[in-house]
């Protein structure tokens, strides 16, 4: 099961890289970046998964004594938790930069933004 999640996350990362490298529209590049982000999170959470174990929350199904032998790895989950919020902050800053670029140059095509000396 972990193989499927890891393969899916890795393929999503590759789709994101493909979008970032081959597209010309800046919004499209930012979409590629956010796909890369999601794929990375899937890979990290998949690495923390262990077979036949439950979520790391102590309740009736998981007594505190058995926590270390019956729960999955909590560290990647804690890392991904903060990484998702930081990813949102980075995406919003990228979007605002794209918006300002569009307002000053009136285009989103990176090929047309290349030189601004002879404007």
């Amino acid at each position: 099961m972990i193989h499927i999640a890891l393969a899916g996350g890795a393929l999503l990362i590759f789709i994101g890289i493909w979008g970032m490298l081959t597209k010309k529209n800046i919004i499209r590049i930012i979409i590629g970046f956010s796909l890369f982000d999601t794929g990375l999170h899937v890979v990290l959470v998949g690495l923390g998964y262990l077979k036949n174990r439950t979520a790391p929350i102590v309740d009736a199904d998981l007594p505190a004594k058995a926590a270390s032998s019956q729960s999955v790895d909590p560290v990647p989950q804690a890392i991904v938790l903060t990484a998702i919020v930081i990813g949102l902050a980075v995406t919003s800053v990228l979007l605002v930069f794209a918006l300002k670029l569009y307002q000053s140059k009136n285009t989103l095509d990176i090929n047309k933004l290349r030189d601004n000396t002879n404007d």
Partner: peptide, 9 residues
């Protein structure tokens, strides 16, 4: 804390 992820974070 019952939620171990919360105690880590």
């Amino acid at each position: 804390s019952a939620n171990i992820v919360t105690s880590v974070v």
